[in-house]
Design a protein around this nucleic acid. Structure first.
Length: 598
DNA sequence: GTAGGGTTAG
């Protein structure tokens, strides 16, 4: 170790100290002009090769999202040390340049610099929640090969990353966990969390019981397991047994009841909660919104703002998704208004959720307005807009938008894009175009059609009356046709009254979904349309004797923050006479302008 | 290490 004892402090040392101090202060904020100023000072002081200063500069530039500058600074260093490599890797990860992070990792090895605990934890963090099993395995191999100092943090992160990679990852995580000589409560919690995520509740509970000591996170993880499995009786029993509870415990149980559809229980527990935070409010509001309970959702949203909580990204996305699902345009607009009021800077994800909400609620102009204002549109933005146009029958507009997307060089259509494109063709009756797109998927875009794409094309052919072609396509599929495929074909048989094909299709469908009531009533409707009333009666008898019941489909409409639900032949409304008069008038008007009901 | 989250055929 070198000691530098000088009588007179040279000038560069004092400026170095000043710069170091300034850089340390910059550590947590990201003021670009300040960083640039310091950068200039560093160059003036000829310190841009200093291995103590440069990592701090790289980190500060990365925080200001100036990755190119950071790389520039890094590239000027002839022999970076492990600390600088780590800083550069972290900078790439912070700026979502994951492949660059790994490239730097490989460079550091070919330059003979050995990775350390920080390197691995940064790389593992980049994999976190991304379901990158092969990448995690690659890092794991490196760790096994080169070893690391006996820090429990690395194997713990490894378990965690594996656990985010689905069932295969969890079994890898178990191996790491079992091989660990020393475990702390985090190791146990991570593996239990992984087991809970893949639905291995029994195994999770076994480890929970085996644990030497549990903390609140352990209890919450296990509670979430019961809650996510919709085992609400077990969850509630467990919740009551907990030695202590925090806002997370309460949120888990509220979310569990909410997702299970028991809003009364969810609300009762929500009201009882000693402390509520933004996440809790989001859970209950999105819960009501998802079920179309506009009044409750809206009044709780107002209440949340009244207690001084402003929606964050999570709140907005959750509520928008719920509104999109149930068509609550009113609440969606309200949340959008508070985004504008709070001058909240919308991320792409937030904007995408707005596009989707407006599109699904039928407000296509608004959807397009939000869409066109997104400066850094990603594929999800395009897909949401395309799908919005598609489901509302704007086939030509959707296809035009698709041609715009093709001009975007940084974005390539993905399988979801083609679902939207095929759906657009179906809803606009563009059968030939749809078939062309379907065939171009693999040849032009290298995307192998999934069963979902076949579903779209079968719908396309089916609605276009080309039932035999549709049936041939199902039979020639390289993939196993699922119930949705047969169901789509059955729907087409109903529209075009093809009793013979319907019988054959139902036969296949019943094998896949023996107790789905919709399938039987669909065939019964087909018999009815063909005037085969004996078969209708037989179907009804069969359904009754097998105990299959069909809840009739319902439509809903939102008027003044209230959702009204109605079914076919519904006469429950006090003004139902007037309603049917109006429907009659509307359908006459429609016929006059050339609309024919199938 | 635990709670809310964007696009996917009918």
């Amino acid at each position: 170790m070198q000691m530098c004892v000088s009588v007179r402090t040279p000038k560069w040392v004092s400026s170095r100290r000043v710069l170091e101090q300034k850089l340390s202060q910059l550590h947590k904020c990201s003021n670009l002009s300040q960083v640039k100023q310091i950068h200039a000072q560093i160059i003036r002081a000829n310190l841009h090769h200093d291995l103590y200063i440069v990592p701090k500069l790289v980190a500060a530039l990365s925080l200001c999202r100036q990755l190119a500058l950071a790389v520039n600074v890094f590239d000027q260093i002839q022999e970076p040390n492990v600390h600088l490599y780590n800083t550069m890797i972290r900078a790439h990860i912070q700026n979502s340049q994951t492949s660059q992070a790994f490239a730097t990792f490989f460079n550091m090895q070919s330059n003979g610099v050995c990775p350390d605990n920080f390197t691995y934890s940064f790389l593992l963090k980049a994999c976190y929640g991304r379901n990158w099993l092969p990448v995690v395995q690659m890092i794991h191999n490196h760790i096994e090969k080169f070893g690391f100092s006996s820090d429990i943090f690395v194997p713990n992160s490894l378990i965690d990353c594996y656990c985010k990679c689905g069932p295969l990852g969890v079994s890898e995580a178990k191996k790491v966990f079992n091989a660990m000589g020393v475990r702390d409560v985090v190791s146990w919690n991570s593996i239990i969390g992984g087991l809970v995520k893949v639905g291995e509740l029994g195994e999770a509970r076994q480890l929970f019981d085996e644990m030497p000591e549990r903390d609140l996170v352990t209890w919450n993880t296990m509670l979430d397991g019961y809650s996510k499995a919709r085992l609400m009786n077990e969850a509630f029993e467990f919740f009551q047994k907990m030695p202590e509870r925090n806002v997370v415990s309460w949120s888990i149980i509220v979310a569990g009841y909410s997702k299970a559809g028991d809003m009364e229980m969810a609300r009762m527990l929500f009201d009882k909660m000693p402390v509520k935070n933004l996440v809790t409010w989001t859970i209950i509001i999105a819960g009501y919104a998802e079920k179309g309970l506009a009044k409750e959702a809206t009044s709780l949203y107002d209440e949340m703002e009244k207690v001084g909580l402003k929606p964050d990204e999570g709140t907005i996305i959750s509520i928008m998704a719920a509104c999109a699902e149930s068509g609550l345009l009113g609440l969606g607009e309200k949340v959008h208004a508070s985004i504008k009021r709070n001058r909240y800077k919308c991320s792409v994800q937030v904007s995408n959720s707005l596009v989707d909400m407006y599109a699904k609620c039928g407000s296509l102009n608004k959807a397009y307005e939000v869409f066109s204002r997104i400066t850094n549109k990603d594929l999800v933005s395009w897909n949401a807009m395309l799908h919005g146009l598609a489901i509302h029958g704007h086939g030509e507009k959707a296809l035009h938008l698709f041609s715009e997307l093709k001009k975007e060089e940084r974005l390539k259509p993905d399988p979801v894009t083609f679902i939207a494109v095929l759906c657009a063709c179906t809803h606009a009756g563009l059968v030939e175009e749809g078939l062309r797109f379907f065939h171009s998927m693999e040849s032009e875009y290298g995307i192998v059609p999934q069963v979902e794409h076949y579903g779209c094309v079968i719908d396309l052919l089916g609605r276009g009356g080309r039932l035999n072609e549709a049936f041939d396509l199902v039979n020639s599929m390289s993939l196993e046709p699922n119930a949705v495929i047969w169901g789509t074909l059955l729907g087409a048989c109903r529209v075009h009254n093809d009793v013979n094909l319907a019988r054959e299709v139902l036969d296949r469908l019943v094998k896949l979904e023996p107790s789905d009531p919709g399938n039987f009533s669909m065939l019964s409707n087909i018999y009815a349309a063909a005037g085969d009333w004996d078969s209708v009666a037989n179907m009804r008898l069969l359904m009754r004797s097998t105990g299959i019941q069909k809840r009739s489909g319902a439509s809903s409409i939102e008027v003044d923050d209230e959702v009204h639900e109605f079914t076919v032949f519904d006469e429950s409304h006090p003004q139902s006479d007037k309603i049917y008069q109006m429907i009659g008038r509307l359908s006459q008007d429609l016929k006059r302008i050339g609309y024919f009901q199938k």
